[in-house]
Simulated assay, not measured.
Amino acid sequence: MQAKNYQDYTVASFIEDDDFIRYVKHQQAVDVLFWDEVLAKHPYKKQDFKTAANQLGVILSAQPLTVPANLTESLWNDIESSIQKNKRKSQIIKLRNIWLSGAAACLALFGYGSWYFYSDITISTKYGEQKVLLLPDGSKVRLNANSSITYARAFNWNDKRKVNVAGEAYFEVKHINQNPAEIKDGERFIAQSKALTVEVLGTTFNLKARPNLNQVALIAGKVSVKAVGSNASRVLKPGELAILNANKTFEVDQKAALAPQVAWTEHKLLMSQTRVGDIIAEFENLYGYQIILPDTAMANKRIDGTISTASEESMLFVIKNILNVNVRQQGKTIYLEKR
């Protein structure tokens, strides 16, 4: 293999390189060793190298699709009518077969590419369930119960790393920026919910996007938080908690106790003068029930302590005893009744 100016290579350069095509297609030991040495000398080309390998892999993996007979017949009739009548039939058949095979391959590649680049992946959790997943860039996400995350199948090829969240998620975003003085769009990470947009580079944060509460708690790093539908935005520092108000402005607690914000990752609720109404709302979010109080004033009672969220029975037991009530259940509705 001939040494080239790999320091100037772009994604397109890699894809057009015969040595690179052979490496992606066959993965022979000598090729793997060669490209490992190239990347060792030019580590700043790793992202372009990876993107090119992924794109070329998609192209090489495309499978032919069967073209509907009525479509091919119609197209071919139009072509055949324009061919001079004195052409031999064997020549027409040969040309037809070549055209059909090419058309099928083009349709297959176009269809596969469209599906890949315009489709999404959604991962969801059931009531009472948590999941931990790795995004294609290596970022780690823990999903709380009754939550979901959606991202593009071609995640690493988009201009920005972007995910959509419903429910609650704890992010450990992988830092991929090589030059702190110049941050490229593809190096940013955006977590989007219906009410909030969180933009980061590499950081750890908790995003809560529930019907009753939208907030971001920053554990480490730096994030920009914006309200969807308004111009409200804030830049958070570690230890700050931003809560979106009903009027789409932010209330920022600069000395927030972060442990309660992330205790759910250990299946716990940490309470410090916490309203019972907030505990009930969390129970409803996690397990899909609706709780009806005999007196709405009960929701304002405040308590301290720790509640296990590992099961609906344990949470309901604590709520019942805090309020000194009996429980009557009808389907997914729970009635708390005075004793």
Rank of each mutant, 00 (worst) to 15 (best):
R161K: 13
F205V: 05
R234W: 08
K174T: 10
T203N: 07
T203V: 07
L196Y: 07
R210D: 13
K162V: 04
I190A: 01
F171L: 14
A220Q: 15
L201H: 00
L213I: 11
R234Y: 09
P180R: 12
Q215I: 05
T197N: 12
E182Y: 15
K184H: 11
H175G: 03
V165H: 05
N212K: 08
A209C: 10
V198P: 00
P180A: 10
V216H: 13
D185R: 15
P180Y: 09
T203L: 09
V165Q: 02
K184N: 09
Q215K: 13
A191H: 03
K162L: 06
L201C: 01
K194H: 15
R210I: 10
N214A: 07
I190W: 01
Q178G: 04
T197Q: 11
R210G: 08
I183W: 02
R188G: 01
S233M: 13
R188N: 06
A232T: 13
N177M: 11
L213W: 07
E168R: 05
I219H: 09
V165Y: 06
L207T: 03
K226Q: 09
L207P: 00
F171P: 01
R210H: 12
N212M: 04
R188V: 07
V200I: 09
G229C: 13
I176M: 03
A227Q: 05
I176G: 02
L207H: 03
L213Y: 10
Q215H: 09
A217R: 07
A227T: 06
